[in-house]
Design a protein around this nucleic acid. Sequence first.
DNA 1: ATAGTGGGTGTTTTT
DNA 2: CACCCACTAT
Length: 740
Amino acid sequence: MESRILDDLNPAQREAAACIDGPLLIFAGAGTGKTRVITHRIAHLIYDIGIPPENILAVTFTNKAAGVMRERLVGLAEGSSHAAAAGRVFFATFHRFCAWLLRRHGEAVGIPKRFTIYDDADSLHVIRQILKSMNLESSIYRPAAIAAIIDRAKNDLRGPQDIEAAAEGPVEEKTAGIFVEYERRLRAAGALDFTDLLVFAVRLLESAEPVRKHLQEKFSYVLVDEYQDTNLAQYRLLRSLAAHGNLCVVGDDDQAIYSWRGADVRNILSFEKDFPAARVVKLEQNYRSTQGILDLAYRVIRNNRDRADKRLVTHLGPGDAPTVYAAADGYDEASFVSGRVRDLESDLPYNQMAVFFRMSAQSRLIEEEFLARGIPYVVVSGVGFYERREVKDLLAYLRVIANPADDAALERILNVPKRGIGDTSAAALAECARAAGVSQADMLNRLDQVGASAMVKKRLADLAHLLQELRRDAADRTIEETLRRTVAVTNYFDYLEKTDPPGFEERAANVQELYTVAQEFANRVGMAEGQPPLVAFIEELSLLTDADRADSSADRVSLMTLHAAKGQEFSAVFLIGLEEGSLPHASAFESDAELEEERRLCYVGITRAKRKLFLSHAYSRRIYGETRDDIRPSRFLEEAGVLEEARFQVVDTAAYRSFRRREAPERVSLNDDTIVRVPLDDDQAAFGVAPGDRIAHPHFGEGMLLRISGHAEDATATVKFDRAGRKRLKLAHAKLTRLS
DNA sequence: ATAGTGGGTGTTTTT
DNA sequence: CACCCACTAT
Ligand SMILES: Nc1ncnc2c1ncn2[C@@H]1O[C@H](COP(=O)(O)OP(=O)(O)OP(=O)(O)O)[C@@H](O)[C@H]1O
């Protein structure tokens, strides 16, 4: 068992990596080498102990993390005869692992082999359809809210009955019914949404003993990174899978940031109870950051009550004090960031710099600034390649080809490109299919049963024919060829050019890029695994995210959300928008638990930095197109004493001082019912109503006018109606009458 | 059937 | 501001 592999670990890490049998928890703070231990432990298992690599399953949080880990593992075997073995370890996210499992054994729980994976947009689409069929208004029953409730329930392995039982309002009550119908429609379409992958995998493992036994034998060693962010479904999956006890999990309760997705930090806190005889290894030596950065991180996270205390030490020395910049506004902040990037660029490559923010929308000002300054950057979260309309359109064609039952995909392409099949015809087709109990694609081949005009039927028949040809040809063509043929027979480029002339070039380029992705996929995967390549490709696209696609070798500054930053590290980090409402986000104000999660998010951001850390906040922001001058710095900055202490460099600006002097209007948070009695400008007063008035609206009834914002035509009243709740109404339009 | 208009509405975070 | 929906005019 003598091993050079473990030489580049410190004693505590080595202990963890060398402990190969039985449950093991590595519970340690940021940058202590948890991920490194996992990688070395796998290498040790294979190269020193002789465990066949295909018996090892390593679960990561993102596909990208899986890729990085695989590379590192190969790196460790460099030059040895084992190098190829590394490729046989199964690295995957939970979702990908479940998809793999269900492709093979899903039939035991009623999932067809060629199931399709519905993404968020598909799910929302289905929910909207259901709302329509139930005659529920989507303004009250907000599809996204309903989707969130359903998704959350599924992650907790709960069903419609549980939601109904726990329902607190009308929306939740109805959600149970929508949930039932949602499930029905997905099953009928042979589709699983992201969370279904987990749900059905759990169901499969817990109900089909032969499958479970087989997997337990196959994966005799299971390792899980970022265990603090696992949810109930994932936990149950691990329990079944790793009943043999050879389960190694690593994590840090201070980095639990996915509770909104059902992740439960108690999974890691009670690991010892769940897996008796578990060994626990704690690591304290941080190898990533300088002491100044770690101190600041600690000053933030220590304010969480609900945590296991951990101190981190580093021997990288004190380093540069983190810089705090108080910006006048978002533009000022952006120019601060670009200025510092310019200062740093002689010492650091761009890809060692990153800008983090709470919400994707916050990247915009930074992007504009970088564009103007010629600083190369890449946005690694937000609307990306795979969400592009053109990519999803073509993917929908592939989906229908691979799985004719995929109604969501069919509905997407029914009239894309425009072929004169409008909402009415689409609804008729859907209704007939529903009545006949078949998929809409099947219905296309039984048009005699569809009540529609001859003209429409002809168009539907043409589509059916087109799909049939594509499907027939797909059998003996490459994916790329199928894609090209689809584009050709549908005249897809013409459609793009007609519908979006200014965006045409970019969209066409994305289509080309998709060809390349298909080609690379084919080269990489070959004909392995005996799976139809088309099905495998669609799965790949469904599970990949933009972050996975980002080429880390390209020399660009990374822009990403704090959530996307987890697990990564950069020499220089900018954490922007450190303001009340943003970080912590306004939606967390009401709940201590959520505030603590926001604080952890801040902690995660800070601890990504190796040597340079810049924190910034602005006193003025545009929110909903309105400029707000009453923005306060984040409580996290205050708690940490950052704003006063000389040990941190506080950059102040003349611009900011003048902002501070200006009289701030009464503070209003987005959710409260304060009546904002600031003097109205003449154009606002002209409407004859003022904050504090009782008013009546023809549709919403009576209410209290809370505030007026905007000017002239755009003057908008915020009214709290007695029955209809809070509404915003354009004064120029809404007929408000003043009572009393 | 579709394009264009003009309301109202709402905000996280992602596999 | 950006998105989504309902409505109107072609
Ligand atoms: N024993 C060691 N010797 C040298 N460098 C190390 C050692 N252990 C870890 N490192 C380095 O420290 C950095 C952080 O390691 P790693 O990403 O594994 O930490 P982590 O605990 O997973 O962090 P986090 O939880 O913050 O994502 C990496 O650059 C890694 O190479």
